[in-house]
Each structure stands twice: as C-alpha cells, then as structure tokens.
Design a binder for these strands. Sequence first.
RNA 1: CGGGGUGUAGCGUAGCCCGGUAUCGCGCCACAUUUGGGAUGUGGAGGUCGUAGGUUCGAAUCCUGCCACCCCGACCA
Length: 491
Amino acid sequence: MDNKKVKRSEDYSAWYNNLVKSADLAEHSAVKGCMVIKPYGYAIWEKMQAELDKRFKETGHQNAYFPLFIPKSFFSKEASHVDGFAKECAVVTHYRLKTAENGEIVVDETAKLEEELIVRPTSETIIWNTYRDWIKSHRDLPILVNQWANVVRWEMRTRLFLRTTEFLWQEGHTAHATSEEAIAETKQMLEVYADFAENILAVPVVKGIKTANERFAGAIETYCIEGLMQDGKALQMGTSHFLGQNFAKAFDVKYATKDNKQEYVWATSWGVSTRLMGALIMSHSDDEGLILPPNLAPIQVVIVPIISKKEEEKELVLNKAKEIQSALRKKGISVKLDDRDNTTPGYKFAEYELKGVPVRIAIGPRDVANESVEVARRDTKEKQVMSSIDIDHKIEHLLSQIQTNIYQKALDYRDQHINAVNTWDEFIDALENKTGFVSAHWDGTSETELKIKELTKATIRCVPLSNPQENGICVLTGAPSKERVLFAKAY
RNA sequence: CGGGGUGUAGCGUAGCCCGGUAUCGCGCCACAUUUGGGAUGUGGAGGUCGUAGGUUCGAAUCCUGCCACCCCGACCA
C-alpha cells in the first residue's frame, strides 16, 4: 500500500495520479502511454459496461465486433475524418520478425504489407465499408450496432484513464433511412449517456452541442455530455454524433426506398470510454481516497469484524458477521467480509476508505451482546451504532441515500461553479479566480472561439440543449448573440 | 514534439556536487503478544542503483545515447 498522502488542495494532478495507483485502479505499463487496469479498477469498468450495455439493449441495439486493423485507403475516403485522425494513428507496416546476424530480433523487411494497416482510432470507416454489403433495401434499416473495443490514438501527452494511447470504449454505429430518424437516434443515445452518468456514476452533466471547432471529424453535429471536475476543469464524458450522409457517400452505402429509388443512408455514432473512470474519480473522491457511488461499487458493503483473542468470542463475532453478510446478499448487495487476522481494524478502515467502499459495518463482541452494529458511510464519514435487527433493509436504504447524496453534492458543486458573465473583464475574472464553467454570450464564429482559446485556454464546452434564448453581446467582439454558451478549461 | 524536472528493494527515500558495489521508514516472511481508527517486540528475506555504452584500477556517483514518468506548452475522448 502506498502511504504517500497528497492533498487535493495542494496538487490536484498529483493527488489524482496517486489515488489511481494507491486505490489499485491502474498503473503505468512498460508501454509508453498505455496503462494496466488492475482488477479493482477493471471491476468498476465492468460495472459501467454492464449498466451501459443493458441500456443499449433496451434501446434496441445489438453488439458486434469489427477488426482492429483498418486498411489505410479507407481513411482517405472521408476527407474531414482523415484530417481529424491522421496525426495520431499507429500504423502496421510489416507482418514478420526475424533474427538478425547479431542475434537481435528485427523487422523482416521482406515482409512488408502491400497496404499499411491502421490500428483503429475509431471504427467508422471499417464499419461503413461493411455496412455497404449489409444494406440494400429500406427493409435492412435501421442497423443498430454497438461494439465494445479497444482503440489507439497516439496522443502526445497521456494521463491514467483520462487520456491513454490505448483505451477501452464502446462505439455505437447506426444506419437509418431518414435524417429525422438518425437525429432522433443521436439524441436518444445522448439521453442514455446522461441517464447513466447521473444515476449510476452520480456525476451531473450538461447536455449540449459542440461548436464546429470541437465537432467530431466527419460529423454534421456532435452532441455531448460535459462534467465538471472538483478542480473546476470540464471533462467531456461522452459524445453522440449525427453523421448525416457523409460516411454513406464516402463508402457508397445506398438503399432502395419503397418506391425503388436509390438513397444514401443516414448515420450516427456514439461512444464513451474508460475516461469515465477518470470522471468518476475526479467528481467524488477526497483526501482519504476514492468515493464510489453504491450503484457502481464492486464492493458495496464491507464487514469488519473486531476479533479478539478469545476463541468463543471470536466465533460469536464471526458468526454474526456471516449472518449479516448473508442477509445483505439476499438483497442483492455485494458484501465483503474481511476476516483477516493479520491486520488491525483501524488499518482495514483506512484501506476501505481508500478504495471507496460506500458502507462499512463493524461488529465486535460488544455489538454481539447488544444486538447492534457500527455503520459508517464513506461519503459523509458519519458513524452510528444501530440495532442489527432488520439490518438488511436499513443498509439497502442507506445505500440508496448515499447514491443520492453523492449525486446531490456533485450537482451543488457544479451549479455553484457555473458563472454567468457579461463582459470580457468578468469573463477573465471568472476563468482565473472562480474556476468552473463560464456562461457567456459568443458571436457564433470559429474565429472568436479560437481567439478566446488562445487568450485564455478556455474552450466552448458546449451550447447547452434547451438553452434559454436571450439577446446579448459577445464577450470578446461585442457582436450580437442569441444565447449563452459554456466555456471552461478542459481536460 | 519543445522547455523544465525526476528515476536507488513492492512503496516512499538518503547517498551523487567531492567515484571505493548502498541508508532509513513502511510493506513482506517467521514466532510471540495484540486487535472498537493505519499495533508492538525479536529474528529474517529482498537491490545487476531506469537502461545501453563510455571514462576509470574501481561508477549509484563523472560523460553520452535511449526509455519511462511528472510539471508547463501545442494535440486530443
């Protein structure tokens, strides 16, 4: 266990890195920019996957799997798409190694690929090339497919979970007969993401639309959910793209309409990644460690028996602990009974706080005698001794309270950190001194957006959906504006 | 990729300037005593000092390349 304590308030970045490692979520690997996700971290990711996958299935999607490799030529078919990803692609050029005369293993230059293969940074191209063969008629539509996969983007600078060279994600790719249907799909998946973020991750998000600058390469419109981290920086947590007919045209995907006309198909794609792990960590955790929302915690309740040396007393305590464990399990709660006798209770308390376990139950000889337990909640650190009668109902209720409380706390923080400003001075002041989102009028041009980014490092995170329309003037240029947009410094 | 910094046992570190194969704490193993907020004692194991070269009788220490990580920029989910 890593005992180095770094406070959030002193060095947020070091605190984050330290927490990821000390809570056993992930570590750096021998490969540059790539991480090893450790079992505890992966367990959390699996819970995320399960919740998302359930929601995808409920909205009519099916999972499939497409190749890791994409022929280079596929990329050049959609112009803006290649522009967006060209600078960060890993390329496979050979398929064989050999032993050189000096005994070293080297690339066999005679085994050069005719056409290089790109390790997918995203799968639109290979998928749309495949869809061409799947789609002939309006009766083949819609196609509602999701894939769970790894992708590679050769980023300059990486951070555990937030930006790694290889990352895990899901990417949905759908094909529709009409523009309206595709747009409805795009919006539906945005809602799915928002629901997941708020109800499972307990992270409040702003739903919005990206500006042209921030739009996905190849999309007509990019919808997103944006979260606000505890250090006041924004994090893009998921995107849902309306791709129009761009990919259908690039890959010549047409279908026969009812009256036998050939039309191009309408497309969407949408994805969230292991970056959500970063969002989860940075939204809730504190100086003692991780704080996991119960809906996502691999271990929801840990029981720490206070074991004494006296055999019969120890047995009484353990039996009671097992009894409670089994009662909670019947409620579908995941419970760990930590009966290790080589560490003290205090050590275990600290360890499970570090790992973010929502509820801790301590049971000692005193409790057995009194039919009580000590229940501690991770989010507020409150402890109380309560009767062990009906404990399963009480804990079930408490878990749900904790879920709500964690969300509410994050929501309050977020809402307190949306600063509405009207002048450039206020804009600068908010960015420098208040942190968080800055809600301001903007003249709608990319030039202004880029200028602001250059001057302040803040970008437009999104134009919030259902944004109130109001007349105002752009904070930079003074040009008229119809609505506010959200600026922030972002990860 | 540019600027700055770091790399010594599982983790955190001392030693480096002024060359002589390494310090301390936590953790680990054994035993004993402990166990209601990170236990104590005794004994023990664990290091090609990031890596590859070079200088030297001798390199953790000096020089060079490379790798990784951290901070600041540019790029981005």
